[in-house]
Amino acid sequence: METVVESLCCREVSAFWSLVEELTPRPADVTCLTQHPGFEACCLNPFVLKIAYTHFRQDRGPLQASTHEQYRYTAYRQAIRWAYGVLGRSIRKPLPSCVVSTIRQQFQNGDQTYQGFQWPCLDENE
């Protein structure tokens, strides 16, 4: 990842690693959140993401983006919600780099350029 805040391992973030530790029984070969059986179902399944995006669109309006960008954005939101629950409109948390990389690989941008994590703008005038 391009910045320090984006260079997290899922094992370094208790909210994400606890999802792996809660697996019962925990398979020995699950060494990363992206290997968790729920990760594909929650964050990579296009059918699930389409429903989640429809809910987002109902609350906030459509994203002016391609389908793959919509899926990526929604997958990131799904991963955050899975780990932290509902955070609120201006509260952002960086995702582990393994999660971001896997989502980007699944829903690639043609030119391979991505925006990356940004903290929210707290200035009401901007």
Rank of each mutant, 00 (worst) to 15 (best):
D59G: 08
E124C: 02
V13E: 06
E2L: 08
E40L: 05
T74M: 00
S14Q: 08
E6H: 08
N125W: 04
V5Y: 12
E2D: 12
E69I: 01
C121W: 08
Q64W: 00
V99K: 05
T67K: 11
Q105N: 02
A15Q: 11
T102M: 02
P120Y: 05
R77D: 03
T31Q: 00
V86N: 03
G61M: 05
A15K: 10
Q106A: 12
T24Q: 07
V5F: 13
G61H: 07
P46R: 07
T67C: 09
N125P: 06
T67A: 10
V13F: 08
T67Q: 13
M1G: 15
I80D: 07
L44E: 13
W82T: 06
I51G: 13
A65Y: 05
I103M: 08
T3A: 09
Q78Y: 04
T54P: 08
S90T: 04
P37M: 14
R92S: 13
E12N: 14
Q108P: 06
V100Q: 06
Y84K: 07
F16L: 02
R60P: 09
R57A: 15
Q78A: 00
Q35C: 02
F56P: 04
A79C: 11
F117N: 06
V100H: 07
D29I: 03
D111R: 15
G110N: 08
R57H: 12
Q118T: 14
P25S: 14
T34N: 06
E69Q: 01
R89S: 11
Q108S: 15
T3F: 11
T34D: 01
V48Q: 07
T3P: 13
E2M: 14
N45R: 10
L33E: 04
I91E: 02
V100W: 02
Q35F: 08
L8I: 14
Y84M: 14
Q35K: 09
A41Q: 15
S97F: 09
K50W: 13
C98P: 07
C98N: 07
N125G: 06
